[in-house]
Amino acid sequence: MSQRLVNWFKFASPASFYPLAGKMWPWFAAIGTVLAAAGLWISFFVAPTDFQQGEGYRIIFIHVPASWMSMFIYCVMAFWAAIGITFNTRLSGMMSSALAPTGALFAFLSLWTGALWGKPMWGAWWVWDARLTSELILFFLYIGYIALTAAIDDPRRADKAGAIISLVGVVNVPIIYFSVKWWNTLHQGASVSLTKAPSMAATMLWGMLIMALAFWMYSIAIALYRVRAIILERERHTTWVAELPEMQR
Protein backbone atom coordinates (compact mmCIF):
# COMPACT_ATOMS: atom_id res chain seq x y z
CA MET A 1 0.00 0.00 0.00
CA SER A 2 2.64 2.45 1.09
CA GLN A 3 4.70 1.48 -1.93
CA ARG A 4 1.90 2.52 -4.27
CA LEU A 5 1.38 5.79 -2.44
CA VAL A 6 5.04 6.62 -2.81
CA ASN A 7 4.86 5.85 -6.50
CA TRP A 8 1.92 8.18 -7.02
CA PHE A 9 3.49 11.07 -5.20
CA LYS A 10 6.66 10.57 -7.21
CA PHE A 11 4.92 12.11 -10.23
CA ALA A 12 3.78 15.11 -8.24
CA SER A 13 7.29 16.46 -8.77
CA PRO A 14 7.71 18.36 -12.03
CA ALA A 15 11.12 16.76 -12.56
CA SER A 16 9.67 13.24 -12.71
CA PHE A 17 6.40 14.23 -14.38
CA TYR A 18 8.14 15.97 -17.27
CA PRO A 19 9.58 12.79 -18.87
CA LEU A 20 6.37 10.84 -18.10
CA ALA A 21 4.27 13.49 -19.88
CA GLY A 22 6.79 13.44 -22.71
CA LYS A 23 6.27 9.70 -23.12
CA MET A 24 2.48 9.93 -22.83
CA TRP A 25 1.41 12.81 -25.01
CA PRO A 26 2.38 11.29 -28.42
CA TRP A 27 0.25 8.22 -27.61
CA PHE A 28 -2.79 10.30 -26.74
CA ALA A 29 -2.22 12.46 -29.79
CA ALA A 30 -1.99 9.37 -32.04
CA ILE A 31 -5.12 7.75 -30.56
CA GLY A 32 -6.90 11.10 -30.84
CA THR A 33 -5.97 11.48 -34.50
CA VAL A 34 -7.15 7.96 -35.36
CA LEU A 35 -10.41 8.42 -33.46
CA ALA A 36 -11.01 11.83 -35.02
CA ALA A 37 -10.45 10.38 -38.50
CA ALA A 38 -12.85 7.52 -37.77
CA GLY A 39 -15.39 9.84 -36.14
CA LEU A 40 -15.29 12.35 -38.99
CA TRP A 41 -15.63 9.55 -41.55
CA ILE A 42 -18.71 8.19 -39.74
CA SER A 43 -20.20 11.64 -39.31
CA PHE A 44 -19.71 12.70 -42.92
CA PHE A 45 -20.13 9.50 -44.93
CA VAL A 46 -21.79 6.79 -42.83
CA ALA A 47 -24.38 8.63 -40.75
CA PRO A 48 -27.64 9.07 -42.68
CA THR A 49 -29.04 12.48 -43.53
CA ASP A 50 -31.53 13.60 -40.91
CA PHE A 51 -34.97 13.87 -42.48
CA GLN A 52 -35.94 16.88 -40.38
CA GLN A 53 -32.68 18.80 -40.24
CA GLY A 54 -31.01 17.79 -43.49
CA GLU A 55 -27.22 17.85 -43.71
CA GLY A 56 -26.83 20.73 -41.29
CA TYR A 57 -27.30 18.47 -38.30
CA ARG A 58 -23.78 17.09 -38.89
CA ILE A 59 -22.49 20.09 -36.94
CA ILE A 60 -23.52 18.32 -33.74
CA PHE A 61 -20.67 15.85 -34.22
CA ILE A 62 -18.34 18.71 -33.32
CA HIS A 63 -20.73 20.80 -31.26
CA VAL A 64 -21.88 18.29 -28.65
CA PRO A 65 -18.43 16.84 -27.83
CA ALA A 66 -17.01 20.38 -27.62
CA SER A 67 -19.71 21.41 -25.12
CA TRP A 68 -19.14 18.29 -23.05
CA MET A 69 -15.41 18.87 -22.97
CA SER A 70 -15.74 22.55 -22.07
CA MET A 71 -17.80 21.63 -18.99
CA PHE A 72 -15.72 18.62 -18.06
CA ILE A 73 -12.41 20.46 -18.36
CA TYR A 74 -13.65 23.12 -15.94
CA CYS A 75 -14.37 20.37 -13.40
CA VAL A 76 -10.92 18.86 -13.95
CA MET A 77 -9.37 22.32 -13.50
CA ALA A 78 -11.25 22.74 -10.22
CA PHE A 79 -10.15 19.23 -9.18
CA TRP A 80 -6.48 20.11 -9.72
CA ALA A 81 -7.07 23.41 -7.97
CA ALA A 82 -8.44 21.59 -4.91
CA ILE A 83 -5.50 19.17 -4.95
CA GLY A 84 -3.10 22.08 -5.28
CA ILE A 85 -4.61 23.94 -2.33
CA THR A 86 -4.79 20.83 -0.11
CA PHE A 87 -1.38 19.32 -0.79
CA ASN A 88 0.43 22.50 -1.85
CA THR A 89 1.83 20.74 -4.92
CA ARG A 90 3.40 22.80 -7.67
CA LEU A 91 2.33 20.52 -10.49
CA SER A 92 -1.42 20.88 -9.78
CA GLY A 93 -1.38 24.59 -10.52
CA MET A 94 0.57 23.93 -13.69
CA MET A 95 -2.03 21.35 -14.74
CA SER A 96 -4.85 23.84 -14.11
CA SER A 97 -3.20 26.53 -16.17
CA ALA A 98 -2.38 24.01 -18.91
CA LEU A 99 -6.04 22.98 -19.12
CA ALA A 100 -7.61 26.45 -19.09
CA PRO A 101 -6.84 27.49 -22.71
CA THR A 102 -8.16 24.16 -24.03
CA GLY A 103 -11.35 24.54 -22.01
CA ALA A 104 -11.83 28.11 -23.23
CA LEU A 105 -11.21 26.94 -26.80
CA PHE A 106 -13.88 24.26 -26.50
CA ALA A 107 -16.35 26.67 -24.90
CA PHE A 108 -15.79 29.08 -27.77
CA LEU A 109 -16.02 26.29 -30.34
CA SER A 110 -19.26 25.12 -28.80
CA LEU A 111 -20.74 28.63 -28.97
CA TRP A 112 -19.51 29.15 -32.53
CA THR A 113 -20.75 25.83 -33.91
CA GLY A 114 -23.97 26.32 -31.95
CA ALA A 115 -24.53 29.60 -33.76
CA LEU A 116 -23.80 27.96 -37.12
CA TRP A 117 -26.28 25.23 -36.28
CA GLY A 118 -28.90 27.60 -34.90
CA LYS A 119 -29.11 29.78 -37.99
CA PRO A 120 -30.54 27.10 -40.35
CA MET A 121 -32.46 25.22 -37.61
CA TRP A 122 -34.04 28.00 -35.59
CA GLY A 123 -33.50 30.86 -38.00
CA ALA A 124 -31.39 32.76 -35.47
CA TRP A 125 -27.69 32.87 -34.68
CA TRP A 126 -28.42 33.18 -31.01
CA VAL A 127 -31.37 32.51 -28.72
CA TRP A 128 -31.34 33.15 -25.00
CA ASP A 129 -31.74 29.50 -24.20
CA ALA A 130 -30.54 28.29 -20.80
CA ARG A 131 -27.83 26.09 -22.25
CA LEU A 132 -26.44 28.71 -24.59
CA THR A 133 -26.42 31.33 -21.87
CA SER A 134 -24.70 29.14 -19.32
CA GLU A 135 -22.13 28.06 -21.92
CA LEU A 136 -21.44 31.75 -22.58
CA ILE A 137 -21.00 32.37 -18.86
CA LEU A 138 -18.71 29.35 -18.64
CA PHE A 139 -16.62 30.94 -21.38
CA PHE A 140 -16.44 34.15 -19.31
CA LEU A 141 -15.34 32.12 -16.28
CA TYR A 142 -12.50 30.60 -18.32
CA ILE A 143 -11.45 34.04 -19.54
CA GLY A 144 -11.54 35.35 -15.97
CA TYR A 145 -9.29 32.52 -14.80
CA ILE A 146 -6.82 33.06 -17.63
CA ALA A 147 -6.78 36.83 -17.13
CA LEU A 148 -6.25 36.53 -13.38
CA THR A 149 -3.39 34.05 -13.62
CA ALA A 150 -1.80 36.09 -16.42
CA ALA A 151 -1.95 39.31 -14.37
CA ILE A 152 0.03 37.91 -11.42
CA ASP A 153 3.76 37.74 -12.00
CA ASP A 154 4.73 35.24 -9.33
CA PRO A 155 3.65 31.84 -10.75
CA ARG A 156 2.99 30.25 -7.35
CA ARG A 157 0.76 33.12 -6.30
CA ALA A 158 -0.96 33.04 -9.69
CA ASP A 159 -1.66 29.32 -9.25
CA LYS A 160 -3.18 29.77 -5.82
CA ALA A 161 -5.32 32.74 -6.84
CA GLY A 162 -6.42 30.81 -9.93
CA ALA A 163 -7.24 27.81 -7.74
CA ILE A 164 -9.55 29.92 -5.58
CA ILE A 165 -11.35 31.50 -8.52
CA SER A 166 -11.83 28.13 -10.24
CA LEU A 167 -13.23 26.60 -7.04
CA VAL A 168 -15.56 29.57 -6.57
CA GLY A 169 -16.53 29.13 -10.22
CA VAL A 170 -17.26 25.43 -9.92
CA VAL A 171 -19.56 26.09 -6.95
CA ASN A 172 -21.31 28.77 -8.99
CA VAL A 173 -21.73 26.84 -12.24
CA PRO A 174 -24.79 24.85 -11.06
CA ILE A 175 -26.27 27.96 -9.43
CA ILE A 176 -25.80 29.90 -12.65
CA TYR A 177 -27.20 27.06 -14.74
CA PHE A 178 -30.39 26.78 -12.71
CA SER A 179 -30.88 30.52 -12.37
CA VAL A 180 -30.57 30.92 -16.13
CA LYS A 181 -32.92 28.00 -16.67
CA TRP A 182 -35.61 29.45 -14.40
CA TRP A 183 -35.05 32.90 -15.86
CA ASN A 184 -35.64 31.41 -19.30
CA THR A 185 -38.87 29.65 -18.32
CA LEU A 186 -40.12 32.87 -16.76
CA HIS A 187 -39.49 34.86 -19.91
CA GLN A 188 -40.81 32.28 -22.36
CA GLY A 189 -38.90 33.87 -25.20
CA ALA A 190 -38.10 31.59 -28.12
CA SER A 191 -40.15 28.42 -27.97
CA VAL A 192 -37.23 26.20 -28.82
CA SER A 193 -36.88 22.94 -27.00
CA LEU A 194 -33.42 21.45 -26.98
CA THR A 195 -34.29 18.76 -24.51
CA LYS A 196 -36.95 17.03 -26.58
CA ALA A 197 -34.62 16.05 -29.37
CA PRO A 198 -35.83 13.24 -31.63
CA SER A 199 -34.29 9.91 -30.74
CA MET A 200 -31.01 9.47 -32.50
CA ALA A 201 -30.04 6.81 -35.00
CA ALA A 202 -27.42 4.41 -33.67
CA THR A 203 -24.78 5.43 -36.21
CA MET A 204 -25.21 9.09 -35.26
CA LEU A 205 -24.76 8.23 -31.60
CA TRP A 206 -21.66 6.20 -32.37
CA GLY A 207 -20.21 8.99 -34.46
CA MET A 208 -20.80 11.43 -31.64
CA LEU A 209 -19.31 9.15 -28.99
CA ILE A 210 -16.20 8.49 -31.09
CA MET A 211 -15.80 12.22 -31.69
CA ALA A 212 -16.18 12.83 -27.96
CA LEU A 213 -13.43 10.28 -27.26
CA ALA A 214 -11.24 11.92 -29.89
CA PHE A 215 -11.74 15.29 -28.18
CA TRP A 216 -10.81 13.70 -24.86
CA MET A 217 -7.59 12.32 -26.30
CA TYR A 218 -6.79 15.65 -27.92
CA SER A 219 -7.40 17.49 -24.63
CA ILE A 220 -5.19 15.11 -22.67
CA ALA A 221 -2.43 15.25 -25.28
CA ILE A 222 -2.45 19.04 -25.58
CA ALA A 223 -2.66 19.52 -21.79
CA LEU A 224 0.35 17.26 -21.28
CA TYR A 225 2.22 19.01 -24.05
CA ARG A 226 1.42 22.41 -22.57
CA VAL A 227 2.26 21.36 -19.04
CA ARG A 228 5.69 20.30 -20.30
CA ALA A 229 6.23 23.77 -21.68
CA ILE A 230 5.05 25.33 -18.42
CA ILE A 231 7.38 23.07 -16.40
CA LEU A 232 10.34 24.06 -18.58
CA GLU A 233 9.49 27.74 -18.28
CA ARG A 234 9.13 27.72 -14.51
CA GLU A 235 11.97 25.33 -13.70
CA ARG A 236 14.49 26.76 -16.14
CA HIS A 237 16.86 27.76 -13.33
CA THR A 238 17.15 24.15 -12.04
CA THR A 239 19.96 21.76 -12.88
CA TRP A 240 17.68 18.93 -14.02
CA VAL A 241 16.27 21.16 -16.76
CA ALA A 242 19.77 22.24 -17.77
CA GLU A 243 20.80 18.58 -18.07
CA LEU A 244 17.87 17.63 -20.32
CA PRO A 245 19.01 16.44 -23.76
CA GLU A 246 16.69 18.95 -25.48
CA MET A 247 18.40 21.75 -23.58
CA GLN A 248 21.89 20.73 -24.72
CA ARG A 249 21.38 21.80 -28.31
Partner: peptide, 25 residues
Amino acid sequence: LTLGVRGGGVLLSLLVLPLYIPALI
Protein backbone atom coordinates in the same frame (compact mmCIF):
# COMPACT_ATOMS: atom_id res chain seq x y z
CA LEU B 1 -7.95 38.02 -5.42
CA THR B 2 -7.05 41.14 -7.42
CA LEU B 3 -5.32 42.84 -4.50
CA GLY B 4 -2.06 44.37 -5.69
CA VAL B 5 -2.47 42.86 -9.15
CA ARG B 6 -1.67 44.70 -12.39
CA GLY B 7 -4.85 46.14 -13.96
CA GLY B 8 -6.82 45.09 -10.90
CA GLY B 9 -9.92 47.18 -11.57
CA VAL B 10 -10.77 45.80 -15.00
CA LEU B 11 -9.78 42.30 -13.95
CA LEU B 12 -12.10 42.56 -10.96
CA SER B 13 -15.07 43.23 -13.22
CA LEU B 14 -14.14 40.29 -15.43
CA LEU B 15 -14.01 37.96 -12.42
CA VAL B 16 -16.98 39.22 -10.47
CA LEU B 17 -19.64 40.11 -13.04
CA PRO B 18 -20.29 36.52 -14.24
CA LEU B 19 -20.69 35.50 -10.60
CA TYR B 20 -23.27 38.28 -10.09
CA ILE B 21 -25.61 36.83 -12.72
CA PRO B 22 -27.77 34.72 -10.36
CA ALA B 23 -28.40 37.72 -8.09
CA LEU B 24 -29.29 39.84 -11.13
CA ILE B 25 -31.70 37.22 -12.48
